[in-house]
Design a protein around this nucleic acid. Structure first.
Lengths: 250, 250
DNA sequence: TCAACTATGTGCGGTTTCGCACACTAGCCC
DNA sequence: GGGCTAGTGTGCGAAACCGCACATAGTTGA
């Protein structure tokens, strides 16, 4: 889907945006505000395993996913990487632009294919409105995610972290099956591929998941929640209060 | 120093705030803005090893340290803790209030005694002005700190993390000697006391520091920088660009 | 269909850190 | 000044994870 197609097919023709914009931040906007913003939103494909932006790169666009999954990665020593945040349709990427920052604090890669609307950071700054309030609330939620991740990586074993990752990904993808290699996953969890293999083997032995080449299937969600560390619940709770605040305002 | 004393002694009498407010965010404000804000600022002692606020606690005040040091801690499983951010006079605590959040994302403790001005979150929200822009920029910088910490705790050994901690603390305290127990430090670095002891012993063996009961002295700052992980440089660089942005606006 | 490549499964020794135990010492208080 | 306590120093086995090596299995394409 390109910007021209979309614009001609939906926006220009009807003069109203599609009633269901997949992204929840955008969908929470009052209709009149969304009308104003809509001409500046540009559809953008999220291609699996591609890089959306790099750490330290100038903030050019912010991205509002309608579907798919974006991972925020911290990298050190030019190699090792670690997922510090997961962004689905409840949020946005490059939110730091709303803080007046000039460069991105982390790397972002597409961890689940989908589509997003993107918006030039200048347009976001110029726009203001209710969106700005949502974006700031979202940044707070993201900080909780990152903070919790820091502690999680320090204190919790791989198996618990994997369980948490599967749950958080499942929540956002609304699916219990993912196509992903263990090698890719190892860069998310900040461990070696072999570590992922052993942890996944352990979860399978407990009949919580089932996995094969490029594929992981969640079998027992409740069991996974019991196995995952408390970080999942903490982040989940914070997300709910974020959603509550957003709906209060809209 | 209490609010009444200070107000009577300095503000009411002279009708101008002291020329040198220690906190750099406040000091960067244009004079006329600081005049407006000043009556709402309340001096507050930062007492060593006391808790400033807890994770999840309602945001009541924001704190602008003039001296001393505040540590932001992530805690899990009701015990293990980990420093994810250090706040000195360059910044503020409970900055999430500026995002519209209702509760604090982390625990804050006083890691170096000093004084701060505090401001009711409602007053901050009502005030706006240039301060708001500084605060948002600071939050971005804090996110970089937390993100980098997450990766650092995952990938770097205790000795490097300790070196980084000594450097970051030294920058903010503007001193090369700290009074702190190894036990206290172990909660900052997310390790056991014994781990701190061994790492410190190693740094001492290399003639970078010298330590004794409740005391650590930095001997060779350049050597420490060489020993510390790259996370120190990353955070340092981000702080500089934060300072640049703030001074651009003021 | 066979080779080449991608991805997974597993063994094993090494390193870091943990967890526990315990000895030692500086400083405080009675 | 003699005990008490907080803080420090150190040894040792266990656990988690790394790093490397290599075998196996699924997938692709000439």
């Amino acid at each position: 889907m390109s910007f021209i197609d979309f614009s001609a097919g939906v926006f220009i023709q009807t003069q109203t945006p599609p009633s269901a914009v997949g992204n929840r931040l955008l969908a929470s906007l009052p209709d009149n505000e969304l009308d104003v913003l809509f001409p500046y939103l540009e559809p953008h494909d999220l291609e699996f395993e591609s890089t959306l932006f790099e750490t330290g790169q100038p903030l050019e666009y912010v991205y509002f996913p309608s579907s798919g999954l974006i991972s925020l990665l911290a990298t050190v020593d030019g190699g090792s990487s670690l997922e510090v945040g997961i962004i689905g349709k409840e949020g946005m990427a490059n939110a730091s632009a709303a803080l007046g920052a000039l460069t991105s604090p982390s790397r972002a890669i597409i961890q689940g294919a989908g589509t997003a609307f993107r918006l030039k950071t200048d347009d976001l700054a110029a726009y203001g409105g209710s969106l700005n309030r949502y974006v700031l609330l979202y940044i707070h939620y993201l900080m909780v995610q990152i903070t919790q991740s820091a502690a999680c990586y320090r204190f919790h074993p791989i198996e618990q972290r994997l369980a948490r990752w599967l749950l958080m990904t499942g929540d956002r993808m609304e699916s219990n099956e993912y196509r992903i290699t263990q090698d890719f996953l190892s860069h998310m969890l900040g461990v070696r591929r072999e570590g992922v293999n052993r942890a996944a083997g352990e979860l399978q032995r407990k009949n919580l998941i089932s996995f094969s080449r490029r594929n992981i299937l969640t079998i027992d969600r409740a069991g996974l929640e019991a196995t995952a560390c408390s970080c999942y619940a903490v982040i989940r709770r914070e997300e709910e209060s974020f959603q509550d605040l957003v709906s209060t305002f809209s």
